[in-house]
Write a protein that binds this DNA or RNA. Structure first.
Length: 205
DNA sequence: TCCGAGATTCACT
DNA sequence: GTGAATCTCGGAG
């Protein structure tokens, strides 16, 4: 299968569709040390002003400004005093919808990812199995907030055929205090690179 | 294996 | 002033 960078139109689809379809795609970042890439195995959808758990729920602010741009931008936020998390903005400009990248399977640049995480490269499962770990490993910080994924520094590409529907697990989201009833977390069933975060309710399927 | 707390910054109320 | 879309470590069971 050829490698194909996702175009703008991909990100403009309905957020829950984008979230599901991102599973199995590859996030790629160019760095001076080399190329980093990981296969996306876990995501969560945040539906802007419809979603009390979303940063965009209360409207546009300086912090969440990027969420209100058109789909295909990267929204990076800082939380818990020490962590960054990355989101892919979806749908058209002004909706505030986004998909949180929660876990990836390291594919390229494993040595670099391990060095940034300060863990043994043989401990590959620990490199990117959580939204903040993923950012640390890929070196994603506030500088990358607003990056256009349709550009050439960081992007998402398709390498494999679409994931079979029965391989996609669904559950409630992790680490939130409101909007717990929504089953907007999607992950690859049985994949060892999925994060350890425990959703509020048991997984479906 | 599980659970609780600390780390540490900043946007928002 | 408060608490957050988290992670890690240490201690208890």
């Amino acid at each position: 299968m050829s490698r194909q960078q996702l175009s703008r139109s991909f990100y403009l689809q309905p957020t829950l569709d984008v979230a599901r379809r991102l599973l199995g795609m590859y996030i790629v970042r160019r760095t001076p040390q080399g190329r980093l890439a990981g296969r996306i195995v876990e995501v969560e959808a945040y539906l802007g002003e419809l979603d009390p758990a979303s940063h965009a729920y209360r409207g546009r602010t300086a912090r969440n400004d990027v969420m209100f741009r058109k789909g295909g931008h990267l929204y990076v936020y800082f939380t818990y005093g020490m962590h960054f998390c990355s989101n892919v903005v979806t749908e058209s400009k002004g909706t505030g919808h986004a998909v949180l990248l929660r876990a990836v399977e390291p594919v390229e640049g494993v040595q670099i990812l391990a060095k940034r995480r300060d863990v043994n490269p043989t401990d590959i499962e620990q490199l990117c199995n959580g939204p903040a770990k993923l950012c640390q490993a890929f070196g994603i910080t506030r500088e990358h907030n607003g990056t256009d994924l349709c550009g050439e520094t960081m992007w998402i590409e398709r390498r494999d055929p679409p994931l079979a529907e029965e391989l996609i697990g669904v559950s409630t989201r992790v680490g939130i205090s409101t909007g717990k009833e929504q089953q907007w977390r999607f992950f690859m069933k049985g994949n060892r690179f999925v994060s350890k975060g425990r959703p509020a309710m048991q997984n479906r399927h």
